[in-house]
């Protein structure tokens, strides 16, 4: 599974899932925090799409915490305006980005850039 979507608004969540599907991007839609957690553990997605519209502050904090604790590197936050073309373009861009380098290679890269 490429993407896990979290939206408590089922219409917006459904539209998001549909537009990803049209671009052959597999996704699963969740609308509860525990569903989101289960989906992350089960599918280990490359990207989380979180719709913050209508989501209360505490839920946003919980999602934030989950992202950190579960080591998710790529997260796309949606709010208003809800523009499907922009969402698909941002999802594609995030999915095409390479995973960040690990610390050893980061150290070596920095040394090379600094000519050390």
């Amino acid at each position: 599974m490429d993407v896990v979507i979290y939206s408590i608004n089922k219409i917006r969540g459904g539209i998001t899932q549909k537009i990803l599907e049209r671009s052959s991007i597999k996704s699963i839609l969740t609308s509860r925090i525990y569903e989101l957690k289960d989906a992350i553990l089960k599918y280990k997605p490359n990207l989380l799409v979180i719709d913050s519209k209508d989501t209360i502050k505490n839920e946003i904090n919980l999602v934030n915490q989950m992202v950190i604790e579960m080591g998710i590197n790529k997260v796309l936050w949606l709010s208003d305006p809800f523009v499907p073309e922009m969402i698909i373009s941002e999802v594609k861009e995030l999915l095409s980005q390479e995973e960040p380098a690990n610390n050893d290679s980061m150290y070596e890269n920095l040394k090379q850039f600094l000519n050390l």
Binding site: N73, N103, Y107
Partner: peptide
């Protein structure tokens, strides 16, 4: 803007460089 443990550890990379060089 730390999103993962690996991000958090990037501080150590710069700390090591500052110490070593």
């Amino acid at each position: 803007r730390v999103k993962s443990e690996q991000d958090a550890n990037s501080g150590k990379v710069i700390q090591n460089l500052m110490s070593q060089y």
